[in-house]
């Protein structure tokens, strides 16, 4: 607060309820987490109060000074959008695009499956609409407690799985309908993956500035390996289901995913304990194992 000259000049500033409501409305438009919101809230409030004091000094009445300070500041929506764009460039647009495209795709692929193939994928439609709505909700009505990396990535990962099934449904429709739907599904999945990368690496970075770079590198490698492991597992699951019925043997397929999750968690714990070398040793072992697996499969 001390960085504002008026704060230095006037000491403690009385926060007006009108300003509190106004700033709350602005902050709600952003994707900030709780900590960032508190900082932003305080900064905007101080700025408004200083502006209010300046106008009063110029001879404005209290009410006029308050109204002019808020009018010159801009509307809640405008200021909120500008702040959001400045702090997280294109994020809101990407999230909005993901939710709208996902909802339209869900209805299109469901209708195509129903009227062309005769299959009603009701459960998938409900899941796809719920997840599309959830993404839309956190985009247009951000909730402070949800805007943490874990929750956002959880939401995006669920979206990825639900819409990967949508991709399979799109490829299953008779051509030429399948072509357009498949392209749209792939674009939606790519956008979802990009959002997972930016949410993890850029939008909600580690709280320890010294480890930012290492954390970014490890997150990037682990997310990439995770996507690879999950899709290879799904491919083998699909291949097995094609030729046989569901069996407990299929649980063995989950071992690589389990190992990847364990390895990722251990690396992050080591990083938090400043054991950077050990964290890198694990991630390189992981990469080596994947490369060996690829060569073994190619050999077969």
């Amino acid at each position: 607060m001390d960085e504002w000259p008026c704060a230095k000049e006037h000491g403690r500033i009385d926060m007006k309820p009108e300003f509190i409501r106004f700033v709350t409305g602005i902050v709600r438009q952003t994707d900030c987490n709780r900590e960032e919101r508190e900082d932003l809230y305080e900064e905007l409030l101080t700025h408004l109060e200083c502006s209010f004091i300046d106008y009063q000094k110029k001879g404005y009445s209290e009410e006029e000074a308050m109204r002019t300070a808020m009018t010159n500041f801009g509307t809640e929506q405008e200021v909120g959008d500008q702040l959001q764009e400045a702090m997280y460039p294109y994020r809101k647009g990407m999230m909005l695009g993901l939710s709208v495209a996902s909802l339209l795709f869900a209805y299109s692929v469901y209708a195509s499956q129903l009227f062309i193939m005769g299959d009603a994928h009701i459960l998938w439609l409900i899941l796809a609409v719920l997840i599309g709505m959830a993404v839309l909700f956190v985009t247009v009505r951000p909730v402070t407690s949800l805007n943490r990396r874990l929750w956002m990535n959880g939401l995006l990962l669920v979206h990825l799985f639900v819409y990967f099934y949508g991709l399979l449904l799109a490829t299953d429709v008779l051509p030429p309908y399948s072509v357009g739907l498949t392209i749209i599904a792939v674009l939606i999945l790519l956008l979802g993956i990009i959002l997972i990368y930016r949410t993890t690496i850029y939008d909600y970075p580690s709280k320890r500035p010294a480890l930012w770079k290492d954390a970014k590198r490890l997150h990037f490698i682990n997310i990439t390996l995770g996507i690879l492991v999950v899709f290879v597992t799904l491919f083998f699951l699909w291949a097995l289901l094609l030729f046989s019925e569901v069996s407990s043997i299929f649980l063995l397929l989950l071992i690589p995913i389990g190992l990847w999750m364990l390895s990722y968690a251990v690396q992050m714990r080591l990083l938090a304990n400043q054991k950077v070398t050990w964290a890198y040793a694990i991630v390189f072992t992981q990469i080596a194992a994947v490369v060996v697996m690829i060569f073994l499969v190619r050999g077969i």
Binding site: Y110, A111, L114, G118, D119, A120, L125, V129
Partner: peptide, 14 residues
């Protein structure tokens, strides 16, 4: 819209 699509699903599924 979702309820309408679900309803259509029950009617037109083969």
């Amino acid at each position: 819209v979702t309820i309408i699509f679900v309803g259509l699903g029950f009617v037109y599924e083969k």
